[in-house]
């Protein structure tokens, strides 16, 4: 069978199977299980209608369960086993994790990332949205700020490798240092502690555009009269921005903030590309990657820790997004 034919057959079988399932299951329910006739006709119709939603939801619930719920349980289960995958070691992997110096560094660094990147990206995005709002060339400025969003994290990292290059002829940072009279170039990526922030700059650079676009739309949605009322009430531009505009888009700011927070908790490419987690820049996802294929039990334990950290932020995000919708 040619691949083309295979594809066609798959599509026909898939779509046909779906139709067959919904039609057949519905028919079974109405004609066989709870037929709309006989002495119990009223009760049968009511029961059929109670069952029907679950019948139709079942495929989706099943797939979600298989690919989302089961992996969570499965991962946790796997994380209780050792390197070979056969020896049950209980919480041994977790104990080993918390005993590991690098893991603790990764947790602290991740915490820094979560504190700094969403805050900075949202802040710069908000400022950019406000400043470009009434400008004739505002849309051009917005496009430029948004552009990094289109670059992959690895691509962005490569660009910043040039900026941070350990050579005054290539690296912007070292060029500036030399211009200010420094003798030797330094490797920016090896400056202890601060190198974490240099890595964060890359993600902030990427995410500011995202925050700006969403917040710009929110700012446009503010009723103009409330701003005019504030002008008449004597508020200056700063007071209008911080006391009238920002509070009115607080819901959107929180959604943007939490959305970027997830991203930060998942990002691994930047650290992996720039430093490979060396020089004290390890974060949880790259730490997990370093154990993958070597010790899957340990790696899944890290994954599980990451999930536990993401969970509360996600719940909050969903609650906020729902509030926005209302």
């Amino acid at each position: 069978m040619t691949p083309l034919l295979q594809g066609l057959v798959t599509i026909v079988l898939g779509v046909g199977g779906c139709i067959a399932y919904f039609y057949g299951a519905n028919l079974l329910l109405d004609k066989v299980l709870f037929p709309a006739r006989g002495p119990k006709i009223g009760r049968n119709i009511t029961r059929a209608n109670m069952v029907r939603p679950w019948l139709f939801l079942f495929p989706a619930l099943f797939v979600l369960g298989l690919y989302l719920a089961y992996p969570v349980v499965g991962s946790f289960w796997r994380s209780l086993y050792g390197r070979d995958g056969d020896s049950f070691i209980g919480l041994g992997n977790y104990q080993a994790l918390f005993a590991d110096e690098t893991f603790r560094t990764a947790v602290v660094n991740n915490l820094l990332w979560v504190l700094v990147v969403p805050a900075a990206a949202t802040f710069f995005g908000l400022i950019a949205a406000q400043l470009t709002d009434r400008l004739s060339w505002g849309n051009i400025a917005k496009s430029i700020i948004f552009m990094p969003m289109a670059i992959s994290f690895v691509g962005a990292s490569l660009i910043w490798k040039f900026v941070y290059a350990n050579d005054a002829d290539i690296g912007l940072i070292n060029a500036i240092r030399t211009g200010l009279g420094a003798d030797e170039a330094v490797d920016v990526m090896q400056v202890p502690f601060w190198n974490n922030f240099f890595l964060m700059v890359i993600l902030i650079w990427i995410q500011t555009g995202f925050a700006m676009v969403i917040l710009s739309a929110a700012l446009r949605g503010i009723p103009e009269e409330t701003v005019e009322a504030a002008i008449i009430d004597g508020a200056n531009p700063f007071q209008i921005f911080f006391r009238i505009k920002v509070p009115q888009i607080m819901g959107t700011i929180v959604v943007v903030w939490t959305t970027i927070t997830f991203l930060v908790l998942k990002v691994f490419d930047i650290v992996y590309t720039m430093t490979g987690g060396n020089f004290g820049t390890q974060i949880l996802p790259s730490y997990m990657m370093s154990y993958m294929f070597r010790d899957d039990g340990r790696a899944t334990a890290v994954a599980f820790v990451i999930m536990l950290i993401v969970l509360p932020v996600m719940v909050w995000n969903i609650l906020q997004a729902r509030k926005e919708l209302r």
Partner: peptide, 14 residues
């Protein structure tokens, strides 16, 4: 001067 707007223009968060 003080102005009363058609749409009230109340600050919704206050």
């Amino acid at each position: 001067i003080a102005m009363v707007f058609q749409s009230y223009a109340l600050y919704p968060h206050m």
